[in-house]
Simulated scan of single mutants.
Amino acid sequence: MAEPFKNLINAGLVRACGQHLQRAWRGFDRKDFEARALPGLDALEMKARAMHIADALEATLPGDFDRAAGIIETALAPPAVDDRLAFGITDAGLAGWIGWPLGEFIARRGQAEPERGLLALRELTQRFTSEFAVRPFLLNHFTLTLAHLQRWSADPSPHVRRWTSEGSRPRLPWGLQVKALIADPTPTLPLLRALQDDPSAYVRRSVANHLNDIAKDHPGLVAGWLEEHLPGAPAERTTLLRHASRTLVKRGDPRVLGAWGLGQRFRGEATLVVSPRRVAVGGNVTLVATLASSSPRAQALVVDYVVHHVKANGSSSPKVFKGWKLELAARETRRLEKVHSLRPITTRVYYPGVHRVELQVNGKVVAEAAFTLSRPSL
Rank of each mutant, 00 (worst) to 15 (best):
G283M: 06
L149A: 10
R242Y: 01
F128Y: 14
K179F: 07
R49C: 02
F65G: 07
L76A: 04
M51K: 14
R255F: 00
D42F: 00
A92E: 15
E45C: 10
L373R: 13
D55P: 05
V279R: 14
T247I: 05
P158W: 07
H308Y: 14
A194Y: 08
K311L: 15
P296Q: 07
L44G: 02
R109V: 07
W260G: 04
A48Y: 09
R331T: 11
S293L: 09
L226C: 06
P352K: 06
W100Q: 07
G314H: 09
Q196H: 15
D217N: 14
I89G: 06
P114E: 09
K322Y: 02
W25I: 09
R23H: 06
A86G: 14
G353Q: 08
S295Q: 08
V134A: 03
L21T: 11
E131Q: 00
K31S: 14
L119D: 15
A112Q: 14
G232W: 09
L291T: 06
F128T: 02
R348V: 03
L176T: 00
Q177G: 11
M46C: 10
E45L: 11
E228S: 12
R267D: 13
G263H: 10
S294K: 14
H210M: 09
M46S: 05
F87R: 15
Q264G: 13
W163L: 10
M51Q: 14
Y351L: 00
T90I: 04
A194Q: 14
R331S: 11
A367V: 10
G103H: 04
D184S: 10
A133D: 09
E368V: 12
V306G: 08
R335H: 05
V307D: 11
H309A: 11
V274G: 07
L328E: 03
R36M: 03
P276R: 10
E113D: 04
W225R: 05
D83M: 08
S157F: 05
A223L: 12
P199E: 08
L176A: 13
P114G: 08
L21S: 03
V160G: 01
Q360E: 13
D64K: 14
A300Y: 09
H229M: 04
F371I: 01
D304E: 07
H210G: 12
G314F: 03
T60Q: 09
Q19V: 06
G167Q: 02
M51R: 15
V354C: 09
H243E: 02
